[in-house]
Amino acid sequence: MIKHNARNLTNEEFFYGHKACGGCGESLAVRLTMKILGERTFAALPAGCMSAVSFIYPNMAFTTNAIITPFASTGAVASGMAAGLKALGIENTQTVGFAGDGGTADIGLQALSGAIDRNDDIIYICNDNEAYMNTGIQKSGLTPYGTKTTTSPAGKNLPGSITMKKNMFEIVAAHGIQYAATASVGYPEDLMAKIEKAKNTKGTSYVHIFAPCPTGWGHGSEVTIELAKQAVDSGLWYLAEFENGEFILNKNPKEFASVENYLMAQSRFKHLKEEDIEVIKNHRDAKWAKMRKDWQQK
């Protein structure tokens, strides 16, 4: 399989001229993914930042075929495109869905589950920036504990969001999916390698990409990549794969980088008290204890 890196990556752009914010992690994830998938790609995007910034008539940002889907329907529309292409005998194509965290873990979960159940030959990308950013930073099922959003305010009674992130990667894996992975825009070579694997998978594949949002997280647009790295290095996100029915932990740091440094660089976490940070660390440690025990390490 091709090992993608900055030197051999194509200069051709398939997602270009969009109106995303400066430093947008999600648009970088889409751009890199499209570079790997190439020009014979059919993309499905539900409501969310990426569709809002790239289909504004008459300026279209995708140079390939692309469609905005009903919010709940990324999996179903992508499946329908793949089925239509198959029935028409159009071969050597890629069908990909790009949904956000809310579009995947909340409203789009049912249609995604259906697509995996049918093992439709599609790639599903979850761009996780941990809240409903397009509508103005509201809490989603993938918003982590202690996050201040516009619907989970931090105040004297609550520390912001009081739920942990849904385990989307494991929910997807529990279907017995052909291939699933987690990635981060902070580790682009790992990300691109996983997209390449997804591209070469027959049947459904899923890649969950951690993607910071300067507007929603309250950080400078120049530190997107740095924060995407720190999330992994501090253990608050993880790089893993699910292949042939096995979980594989790709990166297992001996020592975690500072959680405080990661959190305090973002205004969404600035209010957190020591005990809130303890809750976050304890949750991280429990998760890692389980991953280190049960998952293979490669």
């Binding site: 469609i67 329907s73 179903a76 529309v77 992508a78 329908g80 495109m81 589950s113 259906g114």
Partner: peptide
């Protein structure tokens, strides 16, 4: 296509029609 809901039945039909 064995879709998991009517919402997906129509969404899938849209995907089919789009190509």
């Amino acid at each position: 296509m064995h879709v998991e809901s009517e919402h997906s039945a129509m969404a899938a039909a849209m995907g089919v029609s789009s190509v």
